[in-house]
Design a protein around this nucleic acid. Structure first.
Lengths: 191, 191
DNA sequence: GTAATAATCGTATGGACATACGGTTATCGG
DNA sequence: CCGATAACCGTATGTCCATACGATTATTAC
């Protein structure tokens, strides 16, 4: 069904089409989901969780290889950028839902929780950076995290829109933004 | 009709409801718009133009009062933040359309043009900053503009979502971001 | 003043869709 | 083996909506 959303948008998502695309009957879809809204909500949760899982994987891999926090964070945030087709499709799905979330409390909840989780993860990274010397001690983790999250989100939009040169410079902008916070060398690993 | 979108979302927008809300008949709406899509497109153009106009006003007022470029830019970007109810409503409308733009080329065009115009305006401001000494000469205007636009957009999302503390710190984050680019004092006005 | 054009209305039609429902087949615990 | 529960199907129903259409009233142009 995410396929369907990515290809033709939420309006094209009818229970019947979704069923047919999944090779099942309308009745079976109804067996699993109380209502269409329910189905949509599950889809949003699924796709949000999918990217969160991938990001978590990147973080743990980076940590294992003893990369600096800034490097790991860069990789994690770049994962959100719609730089190739699968990620563009995923981005489209998430944004379509985000648009719908504006007048659907259930979807808005998922959106808010996902964003809060990302914010928390970034803030934690900044906090750890302070511990290990990559970040100046007077930096406020929440403020820095808000700023970094904002840039990442805004860049993703620009890249998706195909703004002139956006895809080419997105990674550099992200790196510059992180460099403004992670100004020191890592002395010890506190993760 | 933007009222209607802001209150109940795009799904609630039917030609009949829109007509009734505007105190006219279905037939009259049809007289002015070839189709519902046409009506929606006009609405998106109207609301996009409205915020662009307000921003232009802020810029020209700031210029008249001989404020620094960074100050004017801060005011212009803060205008996009959904910090009060009218702006929240407007934000909702624009984002709802942006969501729809993902599978509607006509809406996507409006979105892209609006974003490009904002980017160009910021880039011009940075360029002027170089001329007048507020910005280091080696700063690339397009990259700086992308970064600033990304932060502004991301912050707006955070504020709207009601992320913890987002509304309170948004302006400060914006100011910090601008301070990273506009590092010098203005020596002459080249606008 | 009259012809043409714009503004305005109300209704009808046909299509699409979510959901309800009654039924059938498979799975499995006891 | 058998009762229950889950998996699964197809159709029917009622609603909602965009658009078409024909009619009526204002406005303007000549």
């Amino acid at each position: 069904m995410c396929e369907l959303i990515a290809e033709r948008g939420l309006d094209a998502v009818t229970v019947a089409r979704t069923a047919s695309r999944a090779g099942m009957s309308v009745g079976l879809v109804q067996h699993y989901f109380r209502s269409k809204d329910d189905m949509l909500l599950h889809a949003f949760e699924r796709v949000s969780a999918a990217v969160a899982t991938r990001v978590a994987g990147i973080v743990s891999a980076g940590t294992r290889h003893e990369r600096s926090i800034a490097e790991v964070l860069l990789a994690a945030l770049a994962e959100h950028l719609p730089l190739d087709e699968p990620r563009r499709a995923e981005f489209r799905v998430i944004r379509v839902f985000a648009g719908r979330a504006l007048d659907n409390p259930a979807l808005a909840g998922v959106d808010a929780r996902t964003a809060a989780a990302l914010h928390a993860e970034i803030a934690r990274a900044v906090g750890n950076g302070v511990e290990c010397g990559e970040v100046e001690p007077d930096v406020d983790a929440d403020t820095a995290a808000a700023r970094i999250a904002a840039v990442a989100e805004g860049l993703a939009t620009q890249v998706y829109r195909g703004a002139h040169g956006a895809a080419g410079r997105a990674r550099a902008v992200l790196r510059a933004e992180l460099a403004a916070v992670f100004t020191g060398e890592c002395r010890q690993y506190v993760r």
